[in-house]
Design a protein around this nucleic acid. Structure first.
Length: 871
RNA sequence: GCCCCUGUGGCGGAAUGGUAGACGCGGCAGACUCAAAAUCUGUUGCCCGCAAGGGCGUGUUGGUUCGAGUCCGACCAGGGGCACCA
């Protein structure tokens, strides 16, 4: 491929020098503080936000795509007259900094701030319309002191609590993970198999808002359906009943009950056993006098939690010495098992088994020879013939073998049995959620310290507000695994704020998802020292009107942020219910993968594409196998460095390519040819404008009274593009907006002005064109704007207003079909009467030929669209 | 296993139930050039045909409709989410 910046030939027009030009306009924007946002009640606000990056040290193409999309929206909204807030910051706490400390002997703080500086420089050359005066880094005590204060407020309000619990322990990172961070039984970051440990941990009571978090999803119409669905599934609401069974047998207190949760109380008459989790208190108690049960429980704990293990794990149970009395069949008892498939942390950790109505229960019953009593008769079956074999019947039907429920459909039977249970005091209808509380303790150094103190006499006490922030000590060592805070010689020793006796600081730090649960609130007044944010500013700017980021945060980050917003409302810090009014999830950036003959991965710039289509290694011309396009990742080396692309082609080319071709929600295939095409278009526009500008009337010249047909057609194209591109940007159809701009550029180039009126029309069209392209390629836009003699900066120019008269057609193309097949098209005056359109269609020779002399049975006329003749 | 999304030229992708393939990439032919690059012009879904023209085409298969890429049913393929949640 050609070097885009190679020397030009003698007689060629000057090339667009993006390097100088991009730097020039970046300086101009900075000097004019163009993107600095100030709250202004008299203007409508628009808050655009892209998910802030972790400061890994270098931006990647995913960032480029994300920030380009946000920048187009931000610049477009500015042009439309909105007061735009478009800030940027750093999700700066987290494990990679500690790993770097261990590997490279550099302090996490030093490493992080160096990375921030490097990435900031990279973002600056992208030409983003960011208000850097609001920059925040979550590792800054000026940021996290407010986080600590909010935590104390939440604690006081009962939204934060400590609980001893079985936790997911990542043996590589030596830390606890939230349930959401365990994927297929592996740590989300390390991929290590998660172990179970019992520890006292801090939790945030997200379950308190379970129902509200679920219900509000329905009203969030500017969120992708997919994300709302994922969150709804995650919250996992199910309605059912709790039922209390009286226990009998050795070691049971008189009147003691076993409480179970079920979504199918209607099948109670089909119960044939009870099962409790190996972690259930009853199991633990019975195991004390039953060594075989103790062995069984230990065995269950050894079984891993990975998907594969669960998939293949056999249903196993242990028949305990106790039974329960059947709640609806007086005189009958049911055996109580401890079963490996019953989860302790869902419902009550105990179930009743109805083998006929649940596949797991059926498998279990077959294995242990328990009765299978069918209680729901499928439609069209007769009670005498219907039998359950290997498949449980879980669908709707009519109840039978079920006493007073007989003859009822499932829904009615549920209502009836719940009423019965409640009247007899042996159960009640309840709602159950899958959502668990958010475990936020992490045994790490590089995170926000949890502001709590452990005192032997007073228990766990909050750090007094005036002592905040609790800052991290700088003098820490990373040569041994575990938490450096815990090992620090002095940091954790402190006097108890309540009794003054020696006490010890909490050495756990917060999950970094807390840091990102309110950074968008902080941006509304990032330098506020007295509170997390100024309430009036917050009130003005929030909610975020358009949030943009990866779908991988569909659950964790977005759900936590929705929780945090509600928690702040609870402690009267803010009034909002939802933080993000609009959400857009962008697709990944992908690239082909390359492998050398020895199987090792190759970077795209290590391979050469030959004339004959063969792909070889650049260094030695050995063959390379080309793999399918996948998400860019360091491990497969299919990465392209944004820095290099911007250096070779400029930021506008990178931006334009990111926006063209692929719809933004889909994956984007990064190709050299595509980039080259984007580059050529930048050059073409520069040439086009340079060539057209000479001889045009000055900006602001009086509009001529009349235009030629060609000029009118051009003006029509331009004015329609104003509406079209605007709608495309608002709907995130950037690729369509790009296509429209190509079309307008094509129309401009095809237009050859011959009169003054033509030249006026051409200037008008160029002016419109430059304003429309500004949000996408802002540097080139400014340069063209200046060439056109535009006033001030294009970044401050308004989106053009179309002339209504030019938006309507006076002639339309109408398709003529015979029996639904296209035979011709004709031009008709707009809104031609139906019978006139029909007559025109029938008169056409193409129509006559296709009708082959047969009479028209029926003619369908859709005005301005189509005439369909049925013969 | 359950839930969701997506299948359109060589490729990325356009199409309020109304002209399928906009726009771009790539290809082909030509102009400019000593030559190339760059640039410009034309052309480009497939098949038959010198042409005029005709036929076929949106994963497969049924249906609704004057008319289906679009709506409905079944199936196939790819992707994503959840997963012993009672």
């Amino acid at each position: 491929m050609s070097q885009p910046t190679s020397a030009t030939g003698r007689s060629e027009p000057p090339r667009y020098n993006f390097r100088e030009t991009e730097a020039k306009w970046q300086k101009a924007w900075e000097a004019a503080a163009t993107f600095k946002a100030t709250a202004d009640q008299s203007r409508p606000k628009y808050y655009v936000l892209e998910m802030f990056p972790y400061p890994s040290g270098r931006i990647h193409m995913g960032h480029v795509r994300n920030y380009t999309q946000g920048d187009v929206v931000a610049r477009y909204r500015r042009a439309k007259g909105f007061n735009v807030l478009h800030p940027m910051g750093w999700d700066a706490f987290g494990l990679p900094a500690e790993n770097a400390a261990m590997e490279k002997k550099v302090h996490p703080k030093t490493w992080t701030y160096q990375n921030i500086e490097a990435m900031k420089a990279q973002l600056k050359v992208m030409g983003l319309s960011l208000d850097w005066s609001r920059e925040v880094a979550t590792c800054d005590p000026a940021y996290y002191r407010h986080q600590q204060k909010m935590f104390l407020d939440f604690w006081k309000a009962g939204l934060a609590y400590r609980k001893e619990a079985w936790v997911n322990w990542d043996p590589v990172d030596n830390t606890v993970l939230a349930n959401e961070q365990v994927i297929d039984g592996k740590g989300w970051r390390t991929g290590a198999t998660v172990e179970r440990r019992k520890l006292a941990q801090w939790n945030l009571k997200i379950t308190h808002f379970a129902d509200e978090l679920l219900k509000r999803l329905d009203t969030m119409d500017r969120w992708p359906e997919k994300v709302r669905l994922m969150q709804a599934n995650w919250i996992g609401k199910s309605e059912g009943a709790r039922v209390f069974f009286e226990l009998t047998g050795a070691g049971v207190e008189p009147g003691e009950t076993l409480e179970i949760f079920t979504t199918r109380p209607d099948t109670l008459f089909g119960a044939s056993f009870m099962a409790v989790s190996p972690d259930h208190p009853l199991a633990t108690r019975l195991a004390r006098h039953d060594p075989a049960l103790a062995d069984f429980i230990a065995d269950c704990r050894r079984t891993g939690t990975s998907a594969a293990e669960i998939e293949t794990a056999e249903k196993k149970g242990y028949r305990t010495a106790v039974s329960v009395k059947h709640v609806v069949k007086p005189g009958e008892t049911l055996p109580v098992y401890v079963a490996n498939f019953v989860l302790m942390d869902y419902g009550t950790g105990a179930i009743f088994g109805c083998p006929a109505g649940d596949q797991r229960d059926l498998d279990f019953a077959r294995k242990y020879g328990l009765p299978v009593i069918p209680v729901v008769l499928p439609p069209g079956e007769s009670p005498a013939d219907f039998v359950i074999r290997d498949v449980a019947y879980v669908d709707d039907g009519t109840l039978y073998n079920s006493g007073f429920l007989n003859g009822l459909p499932v829904a009615d039977a549920k209502r009836s049995i719940i009423r019965h249970l409640e009247e007899n005091g042996v159960g009640k209808g309840t709602v159950q959620y899958k959502l668990r509380d958010w475990l936020v303790s992490r045994q790490r150094y590089w995170g926000c310290p949890i502001p709590a103190i452990h005192c032997e006499s007073c228990g766990v006490v909050p750090v007094p507000a005036q002592d905040l922030p609790v800052t991290l000590p700088d003098d820490v060592e990373f040569d041994t695994p575990g938490n450096p805070l815990d090992r620090h010689p002095t940091w954790k020793h402190v006097a108890c704020p309540s009794c003054g006796k020696p006490a010890r600081r909490e050495t756990d730090t917060f999950d970094t998802f807390i840091d990102s649960s309110w950074y968008f609130d902080r941006f509304t007044s990032a330098r506020c020292t007295t509170a997390p944010f100024d309430r009036a500013e917050h009130e003005y700017w929030m909610p975020v009107d358009q949030y943009i980021g990866g779908v991988e945060h569909a659950i964790l980050h977005l759900l936590y942020s929705r929780f945090w917003t509600r928690a702040m409302r609870t402690v009267d810090l803010a009034d909002r219910d939802e933080p993000f009014a609009g959400l857009f999830t962008q697709g990944m950036v992908c690239h082909e993968t390359y492998r050398a003959a020895d199987g090792s991965w190759l970077f795209p710039d290590e391979v050469k594409h030959g004339e004959d289509g063969a792909v070889v290694r650049a260094s030695d011309a050995t063959p390379v196998s080309v793999g399918r396009s996948e998400k860019m990742s360091k491990s497969k080396k299919n990465v392209v460095d944004p820095d290099q692309i911007i250096r070779d082609y400029g930021a506008d080319t990178a931006r334009w390519f990111m926006l063209s071709d692929s719809p933004p929600e889909r994956d984007l295939e990064w190709t050299e040819a595509g980039v080259a095409g984007a580059w050529r278009f930048q050059q073409r526009l520069y040439r086009m404008l340079g060539g057209a500008i000479a001889g045009l009337p000055p900006a602001g010249a009086a509009r001529p009274p009349a235009f030629s047909d060609a000029a009118t057609a051009l003006r029509r194209a331009a004015h329609r593009a104003i509406i079209g591109v605007g709608e495309d940007v608002e709907r995130f159809h950037f690729n369509k907006g790009v296509a429209r701009l190509y079309e307008l550029a094509n129309a401009i180039e095809a237009f050859k002005p011959t009169t003054d009126a033509d030249r006026w029309a051409l200037r008008e069209t160029l002016d419109i064109f430059v304003r429309l392209i500004g949000p996408m390629t802002p540097h080139l836009g400014e340069e063209l704007w200046q060439m056109l003699g535009g006033q001030g900066l294009l970044a401050d120019a308004s989106w053009p207003t179309p002339e209504t008269a030019l938006l309507a057609d006076d002639e339309v193309t109408v398709a003529i079909q015979v029996n639904g097949k296209l035979r011709a098209t004709i031009r008709l005056a707009k809104d031609t009467a139906k019978d006139a359109a029909e007559a025109a269609a029938l008169a056409l020779p193409e129509t006559q030929r296709a009708m082959a002399g047969k009479p028209a049975k029926k003619v369908v006329v859709v005005p301005n669209r189509i005439v369909n003749i049925v013969v």
